[in-house]
Structure formats: C-alpha cells, structure tokens
Design a binder for these strands. Structure first.
Lengths: 182, 182
DNA sequence: TCATATATGTCAACGTGGCTGACTTAAAAT
DNA sequence: ATTTTAAGTCAGCCACGTTGACATATATGA
C-alpha cells in the first residue's frame, strides 16, 4: 500500500491537508485532556499529577529517570509532583535491588483508584471513537501516531506491544475478548 | 467495515489497548510540539503565540471571540498574546463591517512568514508519518481524531473540509497534486 | 582502592501561560 | 431607552515548566 509517487490521491501531502491534520490533532488533544480536568479539580490535582500517575501505572516499578525520559521534563519539575503524590499516599518508592541508588515507583491502592478515576472518561471517549470508526481506522490512527513519535519511544512502544502479545499466547483466545469492559 | 459486535479483533476495547492509544497520543503530541520549540525560542515566542498565529492563519478574518472558542482560553490570556503579536507586527486587527464591535484578525506578511517557519518542521514530520503509513492509515487517523473532538468543532471541521472540496472542483485535477511541496 | 560517573534529591529564582474578579467602552439588539 | 454583546484592561494568583548550583549515596572502571 501507499506508493506515494504513483498515487494521485488528493489527500496526500497537500499543505492544506497537513494543516487539517495538525488542527485535528490539536482539537483532539485539547478535548481529550478536558475529559480529565473536572476529575483533577475534584481531587485537587493538576495535569502534571495525572501524567505521573498514568505513567507509573503503565510502567510498574519505573525508576525516576525512566519517568523523566518519558515525560521529558526536568527532575526538579517532577520531584515536586512526586513529593505531592507520596504525601497523598498515592505512590510508593522502593530502592532498587540491583542498584540501590534507584527509586522504583509504584501506585498504591489509593493511587490506582485515583488513576482509574482520572482516566475513566478518557478511556470512555477513546473507546467511543474507536467503536464509531472501526478496527481499520484504529489501526491507521495508531500507525500515524507511531510515525510521529521519536525513534526511541517508538521502539519502546512496539516492544511493549510485542511482549504483551507474547505473554498472551498461552491465554485462550476467548479470554481476550471477554475483558472488553468499556 | 468494522462491525464491532461480530469482530473478534483483540485490538478492540480492551483496556490495555485503550491505554496504549492514550500513550501514543501523548507521545505524538509531545514530539509534535517539540518540533516547533527551537523555532519558537529563536523568535522569542511562546507556544501560546504559535497557537494564535496558527489559528489566525487557518481562519482568516476570525474574530477575537471566534479565536477564544477555538483555543478555549480566557480573553485575558489571549489578549496578552495578541498584544505581543500586534506589537511585533505579526497580526493586524480590522473592525468588522457589519458589526463594528468585532475585531477581525489577520496575519501580516511577517506573521505569515513566522507562522510558516514555526510549522515547517511540524508539517514535514506529519508529512513523513503520512507517507510512511499510507492513505488508508491517514484516513483512519483523521476519523479517530474527529471522533475525539467535540460536536461543535467536529461539525466545523467537516464543514470546512466539504467547502474546501467544493471550491476545488473547478480546479483541474492535476493542479491539486502539483501543490505537494513537502 | 581511588577516581569518576550516575541516580536521586534539594534550594532558589524565574518565565510562561493559564485562571478569577472587577470594571470600562462602544455598538448592537430588543 | 434599556439590555446584551464584543472587546479590552488592571490586578493578582497558581500550576508547572525552566536554569543553576550543590549534596549524597552508590556503582563502576582504571
């Protein structure tokens, strides 16, 4: 698919279409973030807390520097957020076994609960968009987004996905569908 | 395509996949913004200036309140940015003809130049992602993003697209491809 | 073992870009 | 004539990013 040179597809590479895509990305991201904002206000947390909770939840036992690389912010910025979350009892830090300088981060039960609360509407919104547009569109969505992200993170994402696929092979195929809950 | 009920597609609606999509969106947006950041620094502008320049460029003669609706910020926030851009000679304000309370915003020649400079790398990045993934993926990308945005803006986007398509019918098909410049 | 590099944390100061609230002005709409 | 709307302004505040300078514990390599 997609031999560029041969395609007369007007959707391709015209500046207007690129700008259209940029604008869609802006609106989508704006509205996606807004889904969590009232919940954040309720918990008296900011978006930075949300991001930290999210990534710690997604990458259990991630180290501080690992988290810094994902978020691309300075450790001074992150440390404020992490201090808050520790104080609120939402995350825990445990020293690394192999390398005791590291701090491995994990959500507490409370952290898990808050994180789920924060992303619930976002997941619902994304699920609705996925449902409305179909598996093929979702696949394209993912591919283009992957194409936008940096080499390193792209490889990390793809590796994680492969790994997840492997660890599911022993599970009977039925189980995989059964989990659909949104 | 995409009858959800009948599909055994494991990509669909599992929480893990939704979270995967959320993360991709985050990374893509993060990296997309970063493309413009050095240029912004060079011009001594902030991201808020970029957004204003972009949307004024995309929506010529937009009013202040129109811009406020797109950006979803307060007029106090916007006014700082607009004041800067006027001072720098990048935008111009002209009173409305029908309604003289309104200020219609437009980029000056300098504003156009700076805006193009700001989005150049972003357009190149998006173009690369589009090229790599193909027309079908791009279509899915757009559909899912449209599904994420609010009713009002979604309709506005689709209307604009339809209108653009109409206004191009008189143009010979060849010309449409010829413009591809990235 | 000693020197260096790394992982983390901390203090201080600052900039951007959001926000609320209060109030003004001009013009449109009823 | 009154009310509503579009825009602007002043003031103060907050979240969250930044730089820079240092401190500490641990790991690692010569």
């Amino acid at each position: 698919m997609a031999d560029l040179k041969s395609s007369f597809n007007p959707l391709f590479l015209r500046e207007e279409d690129l700008r259209d895509g940029m604008e869609l990305l802006f609106f989508a991201y704006r509205d996606f973030l807004e889904e969590a904002d009232q919940v954040l206000a309720r918990h008296k947390l900011g978006r930075a807390h949300h991001r930290a909770l999210y990534f710690i939840g997604q990458h259990p036992a991630i180290t501080v520097s690992g988290l810094l690389k994902l978020l691309r912010i300075t450790k001074q910025s992150l440390s404020r957020v992490l201090a808050d979350l520790v104080t609120l009892g939402m995350i825990e830090q445990t020293p690394g076994l192999r390398d005791r300088r590291q701090r491995h981060l994990a959500l507490t039960a409370k952290g898990i609960e808050v994180e789920r609360d924060l992303t619930a509407q976002q997941r619902a919104l994304l699920a609705r968009a996925y449902r409305q547009t179909g598996a093929e569109a979702v696949d394209g969505f993912r591919k283009v987004l992957l194409g936008l992200i940096t080499e390193g993170d792209r490889r990390a994402m793809m590796a994680r996905r492969d790994q997840a696929a492997e660890s599911e092979q022993p599970v009977p195929a039925r189980a995989r569908v059964g989990r659909a809950g949104l």
